[in-house]
Nucleic acid binder design. Structure first.
Lengths: 192, 192
DNA sequence: GTCTATAACGAGATAGAC
DNA sequence: GTCTATCTCGTTATAGAC
């Protein structure tokens, strides 16, 4: 039986993911991570000998799973794919408001900061985006949208959600996300 | 007659804007800025006694104007508003490719890093987004789209461009931007 | 307005005892 | 696996001569 005891390594990854989301890569120090994870600096380098970059890449993979799970939940809530995307925007808006507009996409800030500068992180970021697109694409295909349409709509859906979440953070308002939901639903419905 | 001589202050702002775009706020040091601007550290603090935050806010305003100018050029290229948005995505894709996928939106990285932590920067960011939305909204209204539709479409257009540019950077591909152009054009055409 | 020097602090990373 | 001490470097910001 699997226990719920949180190991040191997991505490470190979770703390890193939380801090990267709010402060980004350059704004987050390893000492702060070790403090918030209640682990010593020695433990951090024991589990992640590759240092900050290796640790950040692992945290990105953690954020990938977390965001994918939110998408899966939202998309599973209703049958109609256009309505399902709207549910996703509601979940995102809720989380954003509840965190005081702090907790946006768990990987975007780090992704932008490390473009062309940290291969291990860039790879984890690219995989996360591909993963999320695949989750949305599957929902669209299940609803009878086929060919390139499902793949392309899924890509634009993820990208628009990303842009709307950014706008919601800077405006401290849910509106950009709700708007994105309505417009994406309208766009999807032109393919049925 | 206005000369083209570049003053020290302007060199500092331009260098800051360029570095913030590529490295973000936390990743950019004032010493690096003074070096690239060919100004001394003393000059930087002479013109910007408020330090890094004041300087970054000014650089964000510079990036605001730069991006608005690109939008205006793209939107003015053709009459039809849906086609005009596609022109914008082409301009963005071009700039991105030519810079080796480095030069995305001039303010996004800094905006995300400073959410809830640097009021002067946040204000400049919010103004920039509002400015860009207004530029697109004017084009839509001129094409006969009225009421809330123009305002809402403009917001989603900007947000989708932002998300697509991010995706293009991490994928090192123009495709997300071209896709955004096609989908936005399709969405806009449902309002005519 | 420009320049140099430096204060005060925190960063990433490592060594080695336990 | 955990812990502390430390090395080296870079950071923001200030002081004060010119």
């Amino acid at each position: 039986m699997k226990t719920t005891t949180t190991g040191t390594r997991e505490r470190i990854v979770r703390a890193t993911s939380r801090l990267l989301r709010r402060q980004g890569y350059e704004g987050t120090g390893i000492k702060q991570i070790s403090r918030e994870a209640e682990a010593t600096l020695g433990s951090v380098y024991h589990f992640f000998p590759g240092g900050k970059q290796e640790l950040a890449a692992e945290a990105i993979r953690h954020g990938d799973q977390e965001f994918a799970e939110l998408l899966r939940q939202g998309l599973a809530a209703v049958d109609d794919p256009a309505d399902a995307v709207v549910v996703c925007t509601r979940l995102l808006a809720e989380g954003l408001r509840e965190s005081g507009w702090q907790d946006g996409c768990p990987i975007t800030t780090t992704a932008l900061e490390t473009v062309g500068r940290a291969p291990a992180i860039e790879e984890a970021v690219a995989e996360a985006f591909a993963h999320w697109r695949a989750v949305v694409e599957a929902k669209l295909r299940a609803a009878g949208i086929g060919g390139d349409d499902a793949r392309e709509l899924a890509a634009t859906a993820i990208n628009t959600l990303e842009g709307a979440e950014l706008a919601a953070q800077v405006a401290r308002s849910e509106e950009p996300l709700h708007l994105a939901g309505r417009h994406l639903a309208r766009l999807i419905n032109t393919y049925r």
